[in-house]
């Protein structure tokens, strides 16, 4: 029992500095949601039930642009595909949990909680994995909801003509730069962006759908093409 509480506290302690970055992100999410015309209760429901900031911002941007609902859903889910990778690499540590706990822990899976937990799990055998993860993830959830609510409240007081929805592409600039880990990722971004813009006037928002697909394929192709060369360099 004492061990569990210690593990929970360790998780909460390790996540604390990261929470500072969650706060403005949640604020922007809440502000932009109401600024693109989503009602306050619905904006809060999205924050609670979707609980994935980047996909929420993507949805708000596309709702503002008047995209088809199916395209909004598609894009939001594509943005969240990374959770499959997180889910796979953290799954071995949660195997002994009962189903309700697995569901709760899956719901709470975030970039921040995942990253901090995986680092600790790999280097520390003594910590209670389930309690450490809960200690790291619960604060992220709480901070996200409280600051989303604050953003929804503040955003409702800001008139739409201020153009605060422009904060969405700006926020994504910061997200994008962090994702550009190699040349292939840069190519994926250039092809995705130019492709989506080139196909902007296609029916059914196909430009966005095709742009994303082309970007992913381009990044993958450059990655595959550059691997053997790197391997050869290693041999020399």
């Amino acid at each position: 029992m004492h061990e569990n509480r210690r593990s929970f506290r360790e998780g909460a302690k390790d996540i604390a500095p990261i929470l500072l970055g969650v706060m403005p992100f949640a604020m922007i999410s809440g502000i932009t949601a109401v600024n693109v015309g989503i009602s306050q209760p619905m904006a809060m429901a999205m924050s609670v039930f979707i609980f994935a900031g980047a996909s929420q911002l993507a949805a708000y941007q596309l709702i503002a642009a008047g995209a088809l609902p199916l395209v909004v859903i598609y894009t939001a889910l594509v943005v969240n595909l990374r959770f499959v990778v997180y889910s796979a690499s953290i799954a071995p540590y949660f195997q002994s949990l009962s189903t309700p706990w697995k569901w709760l822990y899956a719901y709470m899976l975030t970039d921040q909680g995942y990253a901090i937990s995986l680092i600790r799990f790999r280097e520390d055998e003594t910590v209670s994995r389930a309690w450490y993860y809960l200690g790291a993830s619960l604060p992220v959830w709480l901070v996200w909801q409280v600051f989303s609510a604050a953003g929804i409240f503040v955003g409702s007081a800001v008139p739409a003509h201020w153009g605060l929805d422009f904060a969405i592409p700006l926020t994504f600039m910061a997200v994008l730069v962090r994702s550009l880990e190699n040349r292939a990722a840069v190519i994926a971004a250039v092809v995705g962006g130019v492709g989506a813009a080139a196909g902007y006037h296609l029916p059914l928002n196909l430009g966005l759908v095709l742009g994303v697909a082309a970007g992913i394929l381009a990044g993958f192709a450059v990655d595959v093409a550059s691997r053997p060369r790197r391997a050869r360099k290693g041999e020399r």
């Binding site: 642009a65 943005v79 592409p169 997200v175 990722a185 995705g192 966005l208 697909a213 595959v224």
Partner: peptide, 22 residues
């Protein structure tokens, strides 16, 4: 996993570019 690695860059950029050039 190799394909999924390029999803964030492609998707986020596909949202940004049309939002600023149109």
């Amino acid at each position: 996993e190799q394909i999924l690695r390029y999803v964030p860059s492609a998707a986020v950029s596909a949202i940004i570019v049309p939002a600023i050039v149109f």
